[in-house]
Design a protein around this nucleic acid. Structure first.
Lengths: 152, 152
DNA sequence: GCATACTCTAGTAAATTGATAGAGAAATAG
DNA sequence: CTATTTCTCTATCAATTTACTAGAGTATGC
């Protein structure tokens, strides 16, 4: 299970992607619209900013915005940044590999084999999902019923 | 990331699957061979037993063994039993669905869409991996290099 | 120079994790 | 029948993580 923190981070990034190009968004607005505790969100946005995904502006007319186009930021990136590896076990992580202290023979570990599959499948999905594509997908899914109505 | 507890549980189950049909295995032996703290393993095996995956016998000649054939027990089952849902978010869990309190429109949630994909991919792998198949896979992988030698 | 808005360091209560301890109960050998 | 073996079960505990909250600080712009 993902933590609330990373869930909030993903929701915030998706929100900022939706507002991309329309100027900075206030933390307070973002917090209210997405139902995220404001002070907690501050910490999260700061972290995302300090890792280069966001840019901020102080004072009147300030706020947060993406520091690059939404198609350049993936779900995988955000999760790794806030929570760490996608892998279910450290011994199958690509980004932060760590050997299990209790492992006798890694190559012969059935657990490792199956968890490697899980990590690869997860990474394929999350590293393949950028903010722009995901927003478009949401719109398509949302628009679909209305479009269908026209044909009735 | 999976907890040590569920990692130990999976290792123990795999070990017991390997010994299936050869009589019960002592907790102490299992703990030593798999590098798991004995007292902790006791709790884990008890839990697996109380959920019906294992059977136990007390006294001399006693120990733990699978309560059914290894091909009837999957990785997914064990993980759900010890840790809970496979899903990254409660709102995409099949077994323990729970709505996000901060969610405005579930159907229009991009996060949910992508996490549903992750949960489905994960479940496909883990519910499709039973102990017997996994053991056979380990053996094949392990045997492969030796077989290759014969052809040189 | 004052209001606005982000920045940053601390702190903290509650939950979870990863164990350990020890008394108890059942099975078996002799 | 009793000593030994082995699982059973409840309790406890320290360390870590999670999910926040507080508040002082700093930059920006009108």
């Amino acid at each position: 299970m993902l933590s609330n923190k990373v869930k909030y981070a993903l929701k915030a990034m998706l929100h900022l992607a939706r507002e991309h190009g329309k100027g900075p968004v206030l933390i307070a607005d973002l917090a209210e619209k997405e139902g995220i505790p404001k002070k907690f969100l501050e910490l999260i946005l700061l972290e995302l900013r300090n890792h280069g995904l966001l840019q901020s502006k102080k004072g009147k007319g300030g706020g947060y915005s993406l520091s690059m186009n939404p198609d350049l930021i993936t779900m995988g990136q955000i999760i790794r940044l806030i929570e760490g590896p996608l892998a279910p076990l450290p011994c199958v992580s690509q980004t932060r590999y760590e050997r299990c202290s209790d492992c006798v023979d890694e190559a012969a570990c059935g657990l490792r084999m199956i968890m490697k599959e899980v990590r690869d499948a997860t990474a394929r999905i999350l590293d393949g999902a950028n903010l722009k594509d995901l927003l478009e997908r949401v719109e398509r899914t949302h628009a679909a019923p209305e479009v269908a109505m026209f044909h009735i």
